[in-house]
């Protein structure tokens, strides 16, 4: 059975207990992410963007509500089940790349494939395909310290896509890059969305970055709001 929506969040709530105080981040949030979507999520600091990304990526669990991924509930999975689920379905792209500094580009990209039963040869074939896709095949043996910010983010993208996940979660993917390099990275994400059908959720502060997405949602105090509303509040 196929599902049109990759993610459905129903009546989602998330609360943190800090000392005697309970902080509510989301209370009754609803959201749908269709397959093949390229969604940008914007909002001021503290609006809940990163918490939402953590919930979508299965690195945090909701206090209440349902998280349905490709037709299956994932909000009640155990920690180890979530770990496997992440390995099979999610690719992460971080603001500061989060590459392993002691591994070269090739070995960094190989990391998600170590969780599969692929042979070493098969893993290397996939690694080189991914590096070729991001235009860094000739940098396979380079260490992270020998690469520029743009190159590092491209290696991180290769790592995110090498195991062919359904969803890419990007946390400020261009936050550490100059405009030109940021545009190159965003074009690459667009290509992955358009030509390879990857569903992408990108958290960003940058309106220019958000314009590369097919749609943008604005988050404020744990609720999605119309852009105009947000601007009014800011004014």
């Amino acid at each position: 059975m196929t599902h049109e929506n990759l993610f459905i969040l129903k009546n989602l709530s998330k609360r943190f207990v800090k000392g005697k105080e309970t902080i509510s981040i989301f209370d009754g949030l609803d959201m749908t992410i269709p397959k093949g979507d390229f969604l940008a999520i914007m909002g001021p600091s503290g609006s809940g963007k990163t918490t939402l990304l953590n919930l979508l990526g299965g690195v945090d669990q909701p206090t209440g509500g349902e998280v349905i991924f490709d037709g299956e509930r994932v909000d009640s999975l155990s920690e180890s089940q979530l770990t496997k689920w992440r390995a099979n379905n999610i690719g992460f792209i971080f603001q500061f790349y989060n590459l392993m500094p002691m591994l070269n580009a090739e070995r960094n990209v190989e990391l998600p494939l170590l969780l599969t039963n692929l042979s070493s040869k098969e893993r290397m074939q996939r690694v080189h395909t991914a590096l070729k896709l991001v235009g860094l095949e000739d940098r396979a043996k380079h260490m992270p310290s020998e690469m520029s910010g743009g190159q590092l983010q491209r290696v991180a993208i290769a790592r995110a896509v090498v195991s062919d996940p359904k969803l890419l979660l990007c946390d400020e993917p261009t936050g550490d890059l100059d405009r030109q390099t940021a545009d190159e990275i965003l074009q690459m994400l667009q290509l992955l969305n358009r030509d390879f059908g990857k569903t992408i959720v990108m958290v960003t502060h940058d309106p220019a970055a958000a314009r590369y997405a097919s749609r943008t949602l604005h988050l404020d105090k744990g609720q999605f709001v119309e852009k105009e509303q947000l601007m009014e509040k800011s004014a």
Partner: peptide
């Protein structure tokens, strides 16, 4: 810590 967390996010086990 960041490297461990990244690996765990990717799907590496406890």
């Amino acid at each position: 810590a960041k490297e461990i967390a990244t690996l765990r996010a990717i799907g590496f086990s406890h």
